[in-house]
Computed example of a mutant assay.
Amino acid sequence: MSKTAKEIVTSFYETDLIHTPEAFSEYLHPEVQLDWTSSFGFRKKNLEDIKMLFEGMSTSFETLRCEISHLVSEKSMVTLRGSYIARLIENPEKEEVIAHCMAIWELKDDKLYRGYMISQHGDNSKESLASFLSK
């Protein structure tokens, strides 16, 4: 039995992408395109750009994980809200919220195909961390 779109997206976001580069071919369609608006502006990313992004993060972070707080799916479309949490190489004993994001993914051939993401810098305020501290 094949996975649902929701299960595929969840599995992608739960994968340790900075230490598992082979996961990109498992989860991302060869023609993947991500339209990403962040505090740095708008960027359009393809498969190689996404791989390079996570490769770059692997030089700054000991660990990186995404905590999903909301996940909604309909057919081949999945929307999520989450926060990226990392242990920085400079301070590996402490986890910090580095970014908050919302993304919409369209799947094709059981892989992430078209993505639309908005993100902003994370913060370690009590309100921001409340959902993670309660786990």
Rank of each mutant, 00 (worst) to 15 (best):
Glu14Arg: 07
Glu31Arg: 10
Ser25Ala: 15
Met52Pro: 01
Tyr13Leu: 10
His29Arg: 04
Asp16His: 05
Thr10Val: 09
Arg43Leu: 11
Thr10Arg: 15
Phe42Ile: 13
Gln33Gly: 01
Phe40Trp: 08
Ala23Phe: 01
Asn46Ile: 12
Pro21Lys: 02
Lys44Leu: 06
Val9Ile: 08
Phe24Trp: 12
Asp49Ile: 07
Glu31Gln: 12
Leu28Met: 12
Lys51His: 14
Tyr27Gln: 00
Thr10Asp: 15
Thr20Glu: 02
Leu17Asp: 00
Glu14Met: 07
Pro30Asn: 03
Asp49Pro: 05
Val32Glu: 01
Leu53Arg: 06
Ser39Arg: 05
Glu22Cys: 06
Ile8Lys: 10
Ile18Lys: 02
Leu53Asp: 08
Arg43Trp: 05
His19Asp: 14
Tyr13Trp: 15
Ala23Pro: 04
Ser38His: 13
Val9Gln: 02
Leu47Asp: 03
Ser11Lys: 02
Ser11Leu: 06
Phe42Glu: 12
Asp35Cys: 06
Pro21Gln: 05
Glu48His: 11
Ala23Glu: 03
Ile8Gln: 04
Met52Cys: 05
Phe12Trp: 11
Ala23Gln: 04
His29Asp: 13
Ser38Val: 10
Pro21Cys: 03
Phe42Lys: 11
Ser11His: 12
Leu34Trp: 14
Phe24Ile: 11
Ile8Ser: 06
Lys51Met: 14
Glu26Gly: 01
Trp36Phe: 15
Lys45Trp: 11
Leu47Met: 06
Lys45Ala: 13
Glu14Leu: 10
Thr37Glu: 14
Ile50Tyr: 00
Asp49Gln: 06
Lys51Arg: 14
Trp36Asn: 04
Pro21His: 01
Trp36Gln: 04
Leu17Ile: 04
Trp36Asp: 04
Thr10Met: 13
Thr20Arg: 05
Pro30Trp: 01
Gly41Glu: 14
Lys45Phe: 10
Asp16Thr: 07
Ser38Trp: 13
Phe12His: 06
Pro30Ala: 05
Leu34Thr: 04
